[in-house]
Simulated assay, not measured.
Amino acid sequence: MHAMVINEFGGPQVLTETELPVPRPGRGQISIDTTHAAVGLVDVFFRRGDLAGRPDLPQPPLVPGLEVAGTVREVGEGVHDFQVGEPVVTLSQISLGGYASVTLAQAAMTVSLKGSGVDPAQAVAALPNATTAYLALTRVAHLQEGESVLVHGVAGGLAAPFVAVARSLGASRVIGTVSSQARIKDTEHLGLDQVFTSDRFVQDLDGRLVDVVVDPVGGEVRTASLDVLAPLGRILLVGHAARTPDIPLTGDDLWHRSAGMLGFEVGSYLHANPDAARPAAEKVVDLLAGGRLTLRVDELPMSEAAEAHRRLEAREVPGRLVLTI
């Protein structure tokens, strides 16, 4: 099979096209003839070695890619709910392997697209992060109907689905922030009530408070979010795209504000709780099928994976990048 392999940490050029043996599914697994693979910032972290200190994560040589769409090639022992040829999409898998013409996946982390009419590029671009949004907003932030939500980095692929999911859960107002004025146009399809730049959102909110903040950015944006949080508000920590560290807080900082900071890393959570994956995903498939969740998707052939990584690092991606295979 064709695959893009990282043999050593480094720049985009370390992504090397390689022929590898076709993997066979084990118990509880399926193999997928991959048609689309999502490219995310976490792939860049793996490639650069930012996560090299995590013993629970794959190390070089590795095939990056957490999420794929395609058709079932083969089912492993104990798998009875998928058929060969069935269109599917996977959720985020810390085992990686997506930049390849054949991908192994846990059946529990895979969702059928049969009969949905959902485009596979949209499915792999939006469904895994929409599932993250659903789990984070319902199980962690406990979003209540009528509450307001602020989503940082909303032009990015991780944060964008939070808008539609928050709406479906009854949010009364959804506001976003982006890194610059130029990126505001990249959010026009999301249906936000307002969009601000991340360096001015506190001033532009002008005293209006929000109940839930979704933060995949970190750094100064994370700390500033405390200034717009309503009493009993929650900040959801779902990533750290900023290259600067967080400003340290104490428990007293949260106590005096009656506020909470709640972390959610979907990969490790679903690895430990795989039975939570498919029910959550099925809750948001209808958002895609009904057109209530649509992302901007740029497609590149798998051979241009290095260019995809370059664009991500240069912040030239208004939505999500997907490799076609």
Rank of each mutant, 00 (worst) to 15 (best):
Leu104Ser: 04
Glu77Gly: 15
Val79Ala: 03
Gln106His: 09
Val111Glu: 01
Lys114Tyr: 10
Thr103Met: 02
Glu77Val: 14
Val88Phe: 14
Val75Leu: 06
Ala108Thr: 10
Thr110Gly: 03
Gly85His: 06
Thr103Trp: 00
Val79Ile: 05
Val102Met: 10
Ser112Thr: 13
Gly117Pro: 07
Ala100Lys: 01
Ser116Pro: 04
Glu74Ser: 09
Asp119Gly: 06
Met109Tyr: 06
Val84Tyr: 15
Gly115Gln: 13
Gly97Leu: 08
Val84Glu: 15
Leu91Gln: 07
Val75Thr: 15
Gly76His: 14
Ala108Pro: 03
Glu86Gln: 13
Ser116Gln: 14
Thr103Phe: 00
Phe82Tyr: 04
Val111Tyr: 00
Ser95Ala: 04
Val88Lys: 15
Gly85Cys: 08
Ser95Arg: 01
Arg73Ser: 10
Glu74Trp: 04
His80Tyr: 13
Gly98Phe: 03
Thr103Asn: 05
Asp119His: 14
Met109Arg: 05
Leu96Cys: 07
Val118Trp: 15
Asp119Met: 15
Leu91Tyr: 03
Thr71Lys: 11
Thr71Asp: 09
Lys114Gln: 11
Ser101Met: 10
Asp81Trp: 12
Gly97Gln: 03
Gly97Asp: 04
Ala121Tyr: 00
Glu86Cys: 13
Thr90Ala: 07
Val79Cys: 03
Leu96Tyr: 12
Lys114Leu: 13
Val102His: 09
Tyr99Pro: 00
Gly76Gln: 06
Met109Thr: 03
Thr110Pro: 01
Val79Lys: 05
Ala108Asp: 06
Gly85Ala: 11
Gly78Ile: 13
Val88His: 14
His80Asp: 05
Ala100Glu: 01
Ala105Asp: 01
Asp81Gly: 09
Gly117Ser: 11
Gly117His: 07
Val88Trp: 15
Gln83Thr: 06
